[in-house]
Computed example of a mutant assay.
Amino acid sequence: MASEVVVVHANETPPESWDASVFLAGPLPRAAAVPSWNPDAIALLRERWRGDGRLVVFTPEPRGGLEADYIGQIEWEHRGLHQADVILFWVPREPNTMPAYTTNIEWGTWYDSGKVVFGAPPSAPRNEYLRYLAAKEHAPVADELGDAVDAALGLIGSGSRRGGGERAVPLLVWRTESFQNWHAAQREAGNTLEDARLEWTFRVGPDKSTVVYWAAHVTVRVAAEDRLKSNEVVISRPDTAHVALYVPGPSPEQTTVVLVREFRSPASTPDGYVHELPGGSGNGRGLVTQAAEEVREETGFAIGAERLRPLGSRQVAGTVSAHRAHLFAAEITEAELEVLRELSAESHGVGGGEVTWIEITTYGEILANPLADWATVGMIAQALA
């Protein structure tokens, strides 16, 4: 695919597909004698874009200097800011000719989005707070326009082709496995993503570059019903792997099951803890390896991955989150159960933020005590079936 740069001016309709998009945000001159920085940024992007595809550059300057419809331009800018993979802020603030009042509002809206670059000449006044927020959120900061352009292209990388409603999903979410899994399931069902608005992301890591949770307000064409559905938000996270360790009893209700207890902020149980099977999300590990490792981390008990019986995957709560739970089970011996009883005297977990406690109970007690959530009850039922 040939490399190209398409510039979309204020109130213009963007192309139907692209591989990457940049929105130029920052003050525009209030007098004709003051030069705009947008043409220089566009020239640098044309020169330095190396992706094998289409880069779309949104500039809020009307084409040919024509006066744009004010309200229409506001809506156009909001749409472009949401669609853009990267928002390149360049703030050569000058109190009389480019005060950047609107820029301050836009920066305050987007500084923690994970898709911004902040740049400004060191001589530009009143940018200290903006620079502070950029550093706080690990956003790239540049003193030269060329460096800001390079930082924006660095966030984009090679891009990824998207068309139609897919264009509204910025790369930081588009590249996640959780989004691709959800999107693939919708396509397999014959449905089409017509539009989207990324509401928020929860990012982690030293530079906050890893998206763990995301939420998007989507519009989907439901093929089986020939209608648009646009009143829901998709929330997702990486898939999880869980293990049901059990010692068979005379009946399912008398079967001994190993749970872990952990404080989780969303818990609404009487004790404030979740009571669930050992499990969690991985970091590029295979599912069965991930499952065995979660058991070791959360209980201190080592079990070979070869002993884990795969039982498939399902969504945990289909009206809340798009992620899936992958279930494994393993029958353990009475001797191994005694080891777990000894391990229950101390806490387990990794990373400081995770503190887990072993609970040894029966399936009947789990059913009688409403501490375990329905997803946990269902997974145990599947394992014992």
Rank of each mutant, 00 (worst) to 15 (best):
A223G: 03
D112P: 04
F23W: 02
G279E: 00
N231Y: 04
R285I: 01
E128N: 11
V211D: 01
F23L: 11
P238D: 10
V6N: 10
G164A: 10
D226A: 09
R161N: 12
F179V: 06
V355G: 07
P99A: 06
Y273G: 04
S265L: 13
H9T: 03
E338C: 12
G312C: 09
Y70N: 07
F328K: 07
E166N: 04
A291H: 02
P62S: 10
A124H: 01
V6S: 09
E199D: 14
V260T: 09
I358H: 00
F263H: 15
T299I: 05
H275L: 07
R48F: 02
S178H: 14
F263G: 05
S281K: 04
A25G: 08
V212K: 13
G279R: 07
A151Y: 06
G282W: 10
A20H: 00
I332V: 08
P206L: 06
V5T: 14
Y246K: 11
P140Q: 08
N181M: 12
R221M: 11
D226Q: 13
E334Q: 15
G351Q: 07
V257C: 04
S17C: 11
E177H: 08
T376K: 12
D52W: 05
R324Q: 13
G65C: 07
R314F: 05
A322K: 03
P15I: 07
I358A: 02
G364P: 02
P248E: 11
S160A: 15
L55E: 13
P125V: 13
S321N: 12
A302P: 00
A385F: 15
E336L: 09
Y213R: 05
R63L: 11
V212I: 15
R48H: 10
V355F: 01
T103D: 04
